[in-house]
Design a protein around this nucleic acid. Sequence first.
DNA 1: CTGTTGACTTAGACAGTGTCTAAGGTAGGG
DNA 2: CCCTACCTTAGACACTGTCTAAGTCAACAG
Lengths: 151, 151
Amino acid sequence: MSDLLARLRARRWRLTAQRRVVAQVLDGDHVHFTAEEIHARAAALLPEISRATVYNTLGELVAIGEVLEVSTDGRAKRYDPNAHHAHQHLVCDSCGTIRDVHPSVDPLVGLPTAERYGFTVSRVAVTYRGLCPDCAAGSAGAASALTDAEA
Amino acid sequence: MSDLLARLRARRWRLTAQRRVVAQVLDGDHVHFTAEEIHARAAALLPEISRATVYNTLGELVAIGEVLEVSTDGRAKRYDPNAHHAHQHLVCDSCGTIRDVHPSVDPLVGLPTAERYGFTVSRVAVTYRGLCPDCAAGSAGAASALTDAEA
DNA sequence: CTGTTGACTTAGACAGTGTCTAAGGTAGGG
DNA sequence: CCCTACCTTAGACACTGTCTAAGTCAACAG
């Protein structure tokens, strides 16, 4: 689905080599990289690309809605190229891996007006947390170490 | 509900002046402060308290489940003393304010096993995003500026 | 094809958030 | 009242992200 570049052209973006490699990295494996990971992969294709350019480009892609920003822990944000399908995230508490999940039922379930406290609610994020298969295998009985909660 | 100190005593915590003021700040208004805000308020009560101690204490409170850590944007984490009632969060995209909401229906709705990709799911976080009443009043028509999405 | 121009990129300084270390202080049990 | 293990401190450090000034170049006009 490398029509990301086509969409960018349609938006009259100046198509520089730097923007092309960033788009290419995002179009690749459908994972959720951090900005630094994207920079590293982009630099493998175009060694002189700078951090600032990667941050700028990601910020613009997020602003126009082609990429989603995901902040799961307090660490680095991750970038999700799957912006055109509503979905939720499954996050590993141990390694931070993120997987997209496409629920059959939309749990958006309107928040009752009485519970909105005057807020204008525009969207809802649902994040499932736990351990990915690899980490669950590694920590085995340590599953009880999962004493931290968040919802 | 200042039995937080009682619970800490029961856990055989050394009750130092520093830990007491941190607990006191958390027990106060039921808001969601950042670590720096907590440090500032604690320092108003005990001027020589250090940042490291506030971070240490918050980390320990989170580890034992007396306080929840909430990372909504990529900025500073916020600390939620309301750890003993399952709840969700309403977050303002403009000012970052967080409100607890206690939904009548639990949208946890089990994630279908087929959608778990082998993850061991231990909990789910639901975050409603939008504008708080104050920010909605301020930006008025700019509501359409909310082009970013996250779920 | 070539020139022009404004948008883009760069390196590096800077800022916010959080972690770590070594040294000194103190709560709480004896 | 003393000890000692645990706690606190100041400050250095690391990570993530933002900003600036100067140089570069994609795209368009001619």
